[in-house]
């Protein structure tokens, strides 16, 4: 479904990605793990068209998208739940969800999908008219995920959805990510919480300072000595 080949990205003189290649098959949950500054967010931003690769290609469903504008990438079926939630604080929960469906015109379908989001996250339903900026951190993360679902993505990019959440909430969020995947969306999950990520993913890649240093099935990697040392706390 998504294939990345030799992608290089730089911020001015800083080389953030030094030629990475990986792929995501339809229906899978794939995780990209790595320490701070490894280049995980850079990878997702480049897929979404917020950054342009210097070289390499990004092929989504057979189409080269590395030069496509971000709105076109959304319309092709890729949505991103960015790091740090990035909800629109001065707009209501409902408006945030509507913005997620910005390119859609099937108003009935949008209404149904809002109900679907509320069934994943009942707390959002109770707070639908509240300004998003007044939600708790956990609720904001729920909103960010819900908003990401509103474009009916084929592929959903999630950037550290567990960041800053209490352990119980992290479990909830991961359970819902699995549910979203079971309902048909393919998932590319970026995480520092390697334990949780490896437990729900099929395939995993390990990113270190702009390079993929390890890859394999999530099961393999969670048994790998190096990975256990570096990311799973022994």
């Amino acid at each position: 479904m998504l294939e990345i080949k030799e992608m290089r990205v730089a911020y001015g003189a800083i080389k953030a990605l030094k030629g990475i290649s990986f792929s995501v098959n339809a229906g899978e949950i794939v995780t990209l793990i790595g320490a701070n500054g490894a280049g995980k967010s850079t990878t997702l931003k480049t897929i979404s068209g917020l950054l342009r690769p210097q070289s390499g290609s990004i092929i989504f469903e057979g189409r080269e998208i590395s030069t496509a504008p971000s709105y076109e990438i959304v319309s092709l079926g890729i949505s991103q739940v960015p790091e740090g939630r990035r909800i629109f604080p001065r707009q209501s929960v409902l408006e945030n969800l509507e913005l997620g469906a910005y390119q859609r015109k099937d108003y009935k379908g949008i209404k149904e999908d809002i109900q679907q989001v509320f069934s994943y996250f009942p707390r959002l339903a109770e707070r639908q008219n509240q300004l998003a900026g007044t939600l708790s951190g956990g609720e904001q993360q729920m909103l960010a995920i819900g908003r990401g679902l509103m474009s009916r993505p084929k592929l959903m990019l999630l950037d550290e959805p567990s960041m800053g959440l209490a352990p119980l909430l992290v479990q909830d969020i991961f359970r819902i990510i699995k549910e979203i995947n079971a309902n048909g969306a393919t998932i590319l999950l970026v995480e520092q919480n390697a334990n949780m990520a490896l437990s729900i993913a099929k395939k995993a890649y390990v990113l270190e300072t702009g390079k993929i240093v390890l890859s394999g099935s999530a099961e393999e990697l969670s048994r790998n000595e190096q990975v256990r040392k570096a990311y799973l706390g022994g």
Binding site: S48, G49, L50, P69, S70, Y71, V74, S75, S79, Q80, P82, R86, I87, F88, P89, R90, Q91, E95, E98, L99, G100, Y102, Q103, R147, S151
Partner: peptide
Amino acid sequence: TKTGKAMRALAQDLEAAQLMGVN
């Protein structure tokens, strides 16, 4: 209006608005 809401979104967070598919 939809355009009005997109304007407000853009004013708050340009990158996030782009991720919503706003041109």
